[in-house]
Design a protein around this nucleic acid. Structure first.
Lengths: 229, 229
DNA sequence: CTTGGATTTGACCAACTGGTCAAACTCACG
DNA sequence: CGTGAGTTTGACCAGTTGGTCAAATCCAAG
């Protein structure tokens, strides 16, 4: 929708005036220049830093510009608006964010597949806490800019994996539970370490939470899911 | 700290000029009037609504004023600043928020005490989702206005309950695990239903998440904590 | 029903914010 | 090394935001 609008506007501009922004330039189907690639990446990196720390409304274009080492008008040369930066960032990250879940393999050993998924997800919290907080910020506030993407990408993927879980439970490979709530629990437990990082670290008094977390979660899910018998 | 500063300023005012705000009035130690009680409550209720939905920076004083049915200058008669509203709201809610944890009784049956705590906490997410999101918003963004309060109130309380958990584990009453991570897991799992409400509901396709959540969490912690024997 | 303190508000302000624009500058390429 | 497309920026703007203030209104106690 947003992209559609931009394309429309850019189309008008390219017909009327000389190119004033990246979009009108890009519409000519040239490959991105060295500078375009570098700056676009720098902006998205800066946007991640600032949006994840302050949320969409709490972030300012000036902050992002500073963080990226560019001037504000220069940012707006590469992205037509603050909204566009956010949207671009989101759509670039969502795919990666869902990768650990995609890897769950119906052919693998059920318990080990789930435990491995938990560890992958935990590793994401450790390695990409800003990404986690970016999504957390957005969803806590009702996901006004993300719900569409979620209901497209996440919904289908979850449905697919839930079916696998149900098959495993029906076959007695893992202890039965509500499969959706099982997935929610994995997200909640792993993302908590990134999203509530300051709180967790404050309460751990210097010890790195990620030292004990892997074993804790492994134990939790092993006890929960190992079939009785 | 903030409160201290305000008291200082108010003291100066009361000495210098006629009363222009609530603080200078209150310093005279009169009991709050009917109107003061009503409006203060209305403002805090509105502040909860708005702050929890948009975060501190995302919320505007105008929004809160509208929600409370008062004019903006009138709000600032009752609270000297947006910051003061937020701080007042926080300190009023934090105590209640921690109540479920306080109730954990060292004398009770270990497993049942923990399971009951989980259910109380889950009930909080169901009954007070705005409060949960208020804290979530703040902590995700680094808790710049709350970390002091947390490290005072929460830290001590956690230490106390961790000691109880450790005693129970040592006595073989519950399956041993990392006690702090156990508490983190309870917070993460229960608050997830409030904080990620939109996502959870989107994925549950109309079914109320709180229908199955109590049983899911009961099962999870029972399997995890029931000592082997 | 008067009066002095409590409450309310319209008008206002300075700082900030997202975004624009024309002019200047840089760079790849012929 | 000149040239035109690509890139950068200072100056600017309109709308928003937190907060102020003097004047007006309300209200409870005498």
């Amino acid at each position: 929708m947003n992209l559609g609008e931009n394309a429309q506007i850019a189309g008008d501009l390219s017909r009327a005036t000389a190119s004033k922004d990246l979009l009108s330039t890009m519409l000519k189907d040239r490959p991105p220049t060295r500078i375009q690639k570098k700056n676009r990446a720098a902006i998205l990196e800066a946007a991640l830093e600032v949006f994840s720390a302050h949320g969409f409304r709490g972030a300012t274009v000036d902050q992002i510009a500073n963080q990226a080492g560019l001037s504000k008008p220069n940012l707006l040369y590469y992205f037509p608006s603050k909204d566009a930066m956010f949207t671009a960032l989101m759509s670039e990250l969502l795919d990666t964010w869902l990768d650990p879940m995609r890897e769950i393999d119906a052919q693998g050993d059920p318990l080990e597949e789930i435990l491995a998924y938990v560890q992958r997800k935990l590793q994401m919290s450790r390695d990409f806490p800003r990404e986690s907080r970016l999504f957390a910020n957005e969803i806590v506030q009702g996901a006004p800019r993300m719900l569409d993407a979620l209901s497209t990408d996440l919904r289908g993927l979850l449905e697919e994996k839930v079916a696998i879980l149900e098959a495993w439970m029906a076959a007695g490979k893992i202890n039965p539970t509500h499969p959706k709530h099982l997935m929610f629990s994995i997200w909640a437990l792993t993302q908590h370490y990134a999203d509530f990082d300051v709180q967790v670290r404050m309460l751990m008094e210097g010890e790195d939470p990620f030292d004990a977390a892997p074993e804790f979660l492994e134990t939790l899910y092993r006890r929960m899911l190992t079939p009785k018998g």
